[in-house]
Design a protein around this nucleic acid. Structure first.
Lengths: 131, 131
DNA sequence: GCTAGTCACTTGCAATTTGCAAGTTATATG
DNA sequence: CATATAACTTGCAAATTGCAAGTGACTAGC
C-alpha cells in the first residue's frame, strides 16, 4: 500500500478525494501528458512535446515538474553531456489508467472523439481489457 | 445512442477523446458540481453553493451555465416569482459517473481523501455497484 | 575558433481565468 | 418602508495560460 502522496507546498482545500485529485490533474494538459507516458511510449521532453499536440513548452515543463513533485512521475538521466532525462510514471501515476480509460470512453461516446486516433491508440488494449 | 454533444461556440483543439473531455471538465470545480448533482441530491443554486465547499459564486454560476450549454445539465423552474431553477444532470451528465468513481478511488488511495465523508457519501453505492 | 543546429527549457508579456468581496435584482414578509 | 433571502453580477487583484522569442549546453562541420 503506497503511502499517501504529499507535497509540502500544497494545502488541500478539501478532504474529498475527487477535489484532491482535481487539485493535481484538474487542468487541460496533465492527463494528456500522463496518457502519452502511459500509452504512447513517450519518455523524453521532446517526444512528449511532439506527441501532446500544441502543448506550450512552458506548460509541458511546468506539468512535468509538478507530476514529479507529486510523485506521479520520476525521471532518470539517459545521457550525460548535456544531461537529459527520460520520464516515467510511478505506481501512483500508472494507477491513473482507469481514470484515463473512463475519460476517454466518455469523450468518445459524447464528444465524438477518437478511440483509435494515433494519439489514443488504445483499441487493442481496450479490447484486451474487456475480454 | 445520443448524438454528439456540441457547442457552437467551441472549437476542440484535438480529436482525442481525453483532450475533448478535459476541455469541458478539466478544471477544479466542474466535476465537484456534477458530483453533488449526482450523488448528493443537490439541485438548486443555493444547495450546490452550500455543498460544494468554498466554490465562489461567480464560478458556480459560470460552471452551471457551461454545463447547460454543453448539454450535461438541464434546468427547470421550480417556482415562479421570482423564477428559480432546479438543475439536474442529463444522460450525458449522468454518464460521467464512472469518471467520478475512478477519480475518487484514485484520490482515496493516493491522496488520503475520504470515501465516506459527507461530501462523498458513496459507500453504499460503491458496495452495491461492486456486488 | 566560428557558425549552425538541436534539445530543453526560461522569459516577457498579453490574454484569460480564478476567486474575493461587495453590490444588484426580484421577490416575500412584517 | 425596512429587512431578508436567493441568485446571481460586478470590479478588481492575483494567478494561470499560452505565444513567441530567447538562453544555455551541448555537437557537428568547416
Amino acid at each position: 500500500m503506497p503511502k499517501t502522496l504529499t507535497n509540502k507546498d500544497h494545502q488541500f482545500r478539501s478532504e474529498c478525494s475527487i477535489s484532491r485529485t482535481l487539485e493535481l490533474v484538474g487542468d487541460k494538459w496533465t492527463l494528456l501528458i500522463v496518457r502519452d507516458l502511459m500509452w504512447h511510449g513517450k519518455h523524453t521532453y521532446r517526444e512528449l512535446h511532439d506527441s501532446v499536440k500544441k502543448v506550450p513548452t512552458n506548460i509541458l515543463s511546468d506539468r512535468l515538474r509538478r507530476l514529479q513533485s507529486w510523485g506521479l512521475v520520476e525521471r532518470e538521466p539517459y545521457q550525460e553531456r548535456p544531461v537529459r532525462y527520460a520520464y516515467r510514471l510511478t505506481e501512483a501515476g500508472r494507477a491513473l489508467e482507469p481514470v484515463l480509460v473512463q475519460v476517454m470512453q466518455w469523450g468518445h461516446q459524447f464528444l465524438g472523439g477518437g478511440l483509435n486516433q494515433p494519439e489514443c491508440a488504445m483499441n487493442s488494449r481496450l479490447e484486451g481489457a474487456s475480454s
